[in-house]
Design a protein around this nucleic acid. Structure first.
Length: 486
RNA sequence: CGGGGCGUAGCGCAGCCUGGUAGCGCACCUGCCUUGGGCGCAGGGGGUCGGAGGUUCGAAUCCUCUCGCCCCGACCA
């Protein structure tokens, strides 16, 4: 039974998603600016948690943060042929400033390879300057046709890493390291969503890249969502922007660059990946509030003793757990239970007069994994106040793991094999389809036309041997994963 | 950008066909009452009916234009 105001997932997945976003108060439509949203405090807090988890990993792998201008001279965009073609249709331009027409328009960055390339050309002189490993946290703008909160907005927030290397292998190493040790590690551990790691086909790769890699997560309707990409840009941008260095033999060489990014789309992935008909479900590691505490009382005297107990219990929580005490007096406990469930707080603690007396508290999980809720309600457990911080920490970790396992199971149950095109067409409606692939870019376009599905990745992990291509029937060496994508 | 739907109070909607001084539920405010699963009762506040123009004595309602949102496609982090 869905919560009031939330369309059931099974009935209308899109509307369900929008209901979750609205119900949990994550965002507001910025109706005065096309395709933009306001990240409301709870939605932004999720982004901050994502930033923390990623920034930590980005720095742990040797990168530093910097910041480059929002505006890019339009001519910069034109320097890399494929890049222009890929991004020109969706850039916004600034043509007037200071009350005058500009001699050369600026574009609002849709991504920063070009302007960063310009500066890297000035900074890189010698092999001793390499690798250059910089990340930036920024906003970008892309005039997309159709937008939806977090998943695709005109302006969005992201991080974009831009690195320079001496040779192909070092750039390739960086690209794969970011995909595995930064992105996949973060999404699987902190967001609790399993991902497929692999390489993109020619059709799907980044405009201007030599090769693109990606991690792909499955949403609860069986569609794929690209959770992060990492590009080996080869020497394309180095040549366009003249990023050169003197090697050990004093020979001038073009450098090799990479770029990689994840965006506020990850907020959407988290929502879509875990939530249910009762509202938002957040993995504890990303939840702005991990434990909400509801005091229960009938009189001022009771309130005083209950609040005193809460203060005593939470005194040792500071710095360890993110918690919130809901002291609103005009709302009943039942109302608060429902509200915090819609908002996705992983754990609720109730403290009432009986608990004070028994030195206990009542705990209720937002989501349980071992059986159905009792009469639509989450079962509560009564636990002693002694050692509560450890118990709560353990429960949160259990929930984190439980969410990952549940998502993994869902993905496995919605991943199919296809030996021929008919099977592919039928099964890709329901989830991921793994099949042998030896087709061309044109074949892939044809399949997209007919099925709306694309190759999300050629997974890194491949079975031994060869097979028959699902489309052309030719001998194939690789398995591809097809899916409809967000 | 193509197809479809919709803009009326913070939210969800009725009213429009057949023009006549704008309504319902929830939320909000005040008081009393209540508080371990969406309390109750009473009183109250809140609207240039998305915007502009037109028809008319009179427009939420009819006509034209326009802006925006949602859904489905094509494009994408």
């Amino acid at each position: 039974m869905a919560k009031e105001g939330i369309t059931p997932r099974a009935k209308d997945y899109s509307q369900w998603y929008l209901d979750i976003v609205r119900g949990a108060d994550l965002a507001d439509y910025a109706e005065v600016v096309r395709g933009c949203i306001v990240f409301k405090p709870t939605g932004y807090a999720i982004w901050e948690a994502i930033q923390r988890g990623l920034d930590e990993r980005i720095k742990a792998t040797g990168h530093v943060n910097a910041y480059f201008p929002l505006l890019i001279p339009k001519s910069f965009l034109m320097k890399e042929a494929e890049h222009v073609e890929g991004f020109a249709p969706e850039v916004a331009e600034v043509t007037r400033a200071g009350g005058e027409e500009l001699a050369e328009p600026y574009v609002i960055r849709p991504t920063s390879e070009t302007i960063i390339g310009y500066f890297y050309a000035k900074w890189v002189r010698s092999w001793r300057d390499l690798p250059l490993l910089i990340n930036q946290w920024a906003n970008v703008m892309r005039w997309e046709m159709r937008t939806r909160p977090f998943l695709r907005t005109t302006e969005f927030l992201w991080q974009e890493g831009h690195t320079v290397h001496a040779d192909h292998d070092d750039a390739e190493r960086e690209t794969l390291m970011i995909l595995n040790e930064v992105y996949a590690d973060f999404v699987e551990k902190d967001m609790a969503l399993p991902v497929l790691r692999g390489i993109k086909t020619e059709k799907e790769k980044f405009a201007g890249a030599l090769r693109s890699y990606a991690i792909e997560a499955m949403m609860q309707d069986g569609r794929a969502l690209q959770a992060g990409t990492s590009h080996n840009l080869g020497q394309n941008f180095a040549k366009a922007f003249d990023i050169t260095y003197a090697d050990k033999n004093n020979q001038v060489q073009h450098a090799w660059t990479t770029s990689w990014g994840v965006s506020t789309r990850l907020i959407g992935a988290t929502i879509m990946g875990h939530s249910d008909d009762d509202g938002l479900v957040l993995p504890p590691r990303l939840a702005p509030i991990q434990v909400v505490i509801i005091p229960i009382y009938k009189s001022d005297a009771e309130k005083a003793t209950v609040m005193e107990a809460i203060d005593r219990i939470t005194a040792e929580w500071r710095g360890k757990l993110r918690f919130h005490v809901d002291t609103r007096d005009h709302l009943t406990p039942g109302f608060k239970f429902n509200e915090w469930e819609i908002k996705g707080v992983p754990l609720r603690m109730e403290v009432g007069p009986k608990d004070v007396q028994k030195q206990s508290v009542a705990l209720a999980q937002r989501i349980i994994f071992d059986g159905p809720a009792i009469e639509g309600r989450k079962p509560k457990s009564f636990v002693p106040q002694a050692g509560l911080a450890e118990h709560v920490t353990m429960l949160l970790e259990q929930i984190q793991q439980g969410l990952y396992q549940r998502a993994l199971k869902f993905r496995e149950e919605h991943t199919f094999k296809a030996a021929n095109y008919d099977e592919l067409k039928e099964r890709v409606e329901k989830g991921f389809v793994r099949c042998w692939w030896a087709g061309s870019r044109h074949d892939e376009e044809q399949i997209q036309e007919e099925t709306k599905a694309t190759i999300r990745v050629i997974p890194n992990e491949q079975p031994r041997g060869k097979g028959k291509c699902v489309y052309t029937g030719k001998e194939a060496e690789k398995i591809a994963v097809f899916a409809r994508a967000y």
